[in-house]
Computed example of a mutant assay.
Amino acid sequence: MSGKFVYLQITYCIITEKIHRLKIYIKNMVCVRCELILKSVLEKAGLQYSSVKIGEADLISEISDQQREELNESLKKSGLELLDNKKSILVEKIKNVIIEIVYYSEDQIKENLSDLLSAKLNYDYTYLSNIFMKVRGTTIEQFFISQRIERVKEMLVYDELTLTEIAYRLQFSSVAHLSGQFKKVTGLTPSHFKKIRLSRRNIPGK
């Protein structure tokens, strides 16, 4: 029995290591368009994949060092980049969770951002926060705020929602809170920003 157990352990380790090698992580993926770009690059490189999502892809076959280098060069042409450093990969995972929350989640967040990140990534939030600061030079909270403001900009111009509706969807405590953070980040009030962007859209050639 002990011999079989050791054999199963070794087999499990080999399979786990192989699965780990087949997953690649990509920097700067922020939208569905990035997923389409990655799929196209992988297909042109002759690399089959089982899944592609923001920040990562699962390949069906192993990738050689030369293929990895060529893939990275192709990705860089579209503003993307392969990640190898463990800390950078973790930071990218943090960013991807935040982007998913801000841009793609239809549900209201029922827990603190710190608790949510810890639960999704299986790390203590203090550790995540320290790694993020060391790699990015900014805090997780500041990155979260910047992404929310970028989303507010989109919703103001394209979704034709009121500030009250936007504040509710993005879980600002109030319209005043939204407006205050917006002006702090952009230097403009939301209404002034919307007026400028809409006027530019109405100018021919813009």
Rank of each mutant, 00 (worst) to 15 (best):
F143Y: 15
S78E: 07
V32R: 15
I26E: 05
V52Y: 02
I26R: 06
L156Q: 06
F143W: 13
L38K: 07
K76Y: 07
R148Q: 11
E141H: 14
E165Q: 04
C34F: 03
K110W: 09
E100G: 10
D159W: 10
S51N: 10
V32K: 15
I196E: 07
I54N: 00
I15P: 10
D124I: 00
E141F: 15
K76V: 11
V41R: 02
K53G: 01
L38V: 15
L42R: 00
L71S: 02
E154M: 11
L198R: 07
N72P: 04
P204N: 01
I24A: 08
V32M: 12
K194C: 09
K153L: 08
K194E: 00
L161R: 12
L47Q: 01
S174Y: 07
D84A: 03
T126D: 15
V135G: 05
I60M: 02
I109Q: 13
M29F: 05
I24P: 03
F132I: 04
L22A: 09
Y103A: 09
K110S: 10
A45Y: 04
G3M: 03
H20F: 09
E43G: 01
L80N: 04
E150F: 15
C13M: 13
Y125W: 03
E43V: 10
H20L: 07
F182P: 15
Q171A: 11
L156R: 11
L47S: 03
E70S: 00
S179I: 09
N130M: 10
L116W: 05
H192T: 15
L59R: 02
I94R: 09
E43W: 08
K23H: 09
E69K: 02
V6K: 14
S199N: 06
L42E: 04
T139H: 06
L90D: 00
V32C: 10
I60D: 02
R169A: 09
D159P: 05
T189V: 09
G55D: 00
L22M: 12
Y104G: 06
E17K: 13
K95T: 06
H20S: 10
L113Y: 10
K95A: 07
Y168M: 06
S88T: 02
E73C: 01
K206R: 13
E92L: 02
L156D: 00
E56D: 04
K206I: 00
V102R: 08
Q108Y: 11
K120I: 01
Q108E: 01
E17N: 14
E43D: 12
I14S: 12
K120T: 03
I10Q: 14
F132H: 04
E69Y: 02
V97D: 01
D124F: 07
R68M: 08
A176V: 11
E106S: 11
G205M: 00
V6A: 11
E100S: 13
R148T: 07
N96K: 07
C31E: 08
E165G: 01
L161W: 08
E35K: 09
S78R: 06
L36N: 15
L90H: 04
E106M: 11
Y104C: 09
L117F: 10
S88P: 00
L113R: 03
K4E: 05
R68Q: 08
K120Q: 12
Q48W: 10
V52M: 02
L121A: 12
R169D: 00
D107S: 14
S78Q: 06
S64Y: 03
I24G: 05
I54D: 02
L80D: 07
V152D: 00
H20Y: 12
